[in-house]
């Protein structure tokens, strides 16, 4: 099973892939309306906001956790 290069989500169904295109390496949540992938800063901010919204974390902690996660992902290797 493929995993999204930008957030690590497993992609099993067509609807998991950006634009429903199974040849894409990133998921529906990491794609913009035009199908292109979010930039590093866009993705980072959206993950921080999501972590705060769903887990109630302090912003600085959320930022560290998100950076730690993004550092492992192929899409962002060059950003660290």
């Amino acid at each position: 099973m493929k995993t999204c290069i930008a957030c690590g989500m497993p992609m099993k169904k067509e609807s998991d892939f950006a634009m429903g295109d199974t040849s894409k390496e990133y998921c529906v949540y990491c794609a913009k309306a035009d199908g292109s992938m979010h930039s590093f800063e866009e993705k980072k901010q959206s993950l921080i906001n999501f972590t705060i919204k769903t887990q109630g974390l302090d912003e600085a902690v959320a930022e560290k956790a998100v950076e730690n996660m993004m550092r492992q992902l192929p899409a962002w290797k060059e950003c660290f």
Binding site: K53, T54, M69
Partner: peptide
């Protein structure tokens, strides 16, 4: 500390689905 961040990210997967 790094293990704590990994732990947060493990919970993020759960919170993503629950959300």
């Amino acid at each position: 500390q790094e293990a704590k961040y990994v732990f947060i990210n493990i919970q993020s997967v759960v919170s993503f689905h629950l959300n």
